[in-house]
Design a binder for these strands. Sequence first.
DNA 1: TTGACCATACGAAACCTTTCGTATAACCTC
DNA 2: GAGGTTATACGAAAGGTTTCGTATGGTCAA
Lengths: 129, 129
Amino acid sequence: MAGKPTPRPTDSELGILRVLWERGPSTVREVHDALSRSHDSGYTTILKLLQIMTEKGLVVRDERQRAHVYATSLSQQRTQSQLLGDLIDRAFGGSPAKLVMQALSASKASAEELTVIRGLLDRMEEEAK
Amino acid sequence: MAGKPTPRPTDSELGILRVLWERGPSTVREVHDALSRSHDSGYTTILKLLQIMTEKGLVVRDERQRAHVYATSLSQQRTQSQLLGDLIDRAFGGSPAKLVMQALSASKASAEELTVIRGLLDRMEEEAK
DNA sequence: TTGACCATACGAAACCTTTCGTATAACCTC
DNA sequence: GAGGTTATACGAAAGGTTTCGTATGGTCAA
């Protein structure tokens, strides 16, 4: 089985996915309203995008109500991993560590965040034993 | 001054940039040959892409020889940072730390790499004081 | 100097993304 | 049940990416 993996979302699609991750399953109107705050595209634009995303398998649609309800088909984490892996391949010569180092250098991470990262590092070194 | 910042390279463009980073300034033929190993596109396709990239400012062209020589206009590091910042904004809610953590979790970084990362972390915590 | 070869330039097709107008149907209220 | 509101579906335009064919001119050797 397996079919094809979901394609990498485009910029606009990612904007919609962000809304769905935050709000949970939503109607076109809800997504549109949420996006209106920042970006403004017409209602039918969002509708069309969601229709296309359904075809691509990026979201799933519940048609039981008149106003269809859309939900992401992959968790935020899974999509993030996918995008990350993609970037690692395309721009960091396949080395996740290179990406991490580069990101850390450019990062204005807070003290707490640095602590969390350090903890993660500790655990990884433990497991590597 | 400043003009506009160079646009985010597309996938194909990034493939070409990778070759230029690795080989240094190169002719169309050299880039084409290098890419032939993995991907195969026609010679004029690469030529056209490089012409467009020149217009966009992603590469610079030396026309003193009959076979023009192309070079990247931004260092690999600078482009990587740009792509990273972009991904952080688009998929990680603007939090570099989230990206780092996600990347670290999925990473099979070597012991040395982990050490380097830890050193980086130390320096950052020092400076944050 | 002519022909084979190699380079760039140009234009256009094919495809994808993003946008939205318009058509049509469902629903609600009076 | 008529009219206003709100939904989806559809089609198509505008712009960007990727592809390559063809035109044109420079280079070199016989």
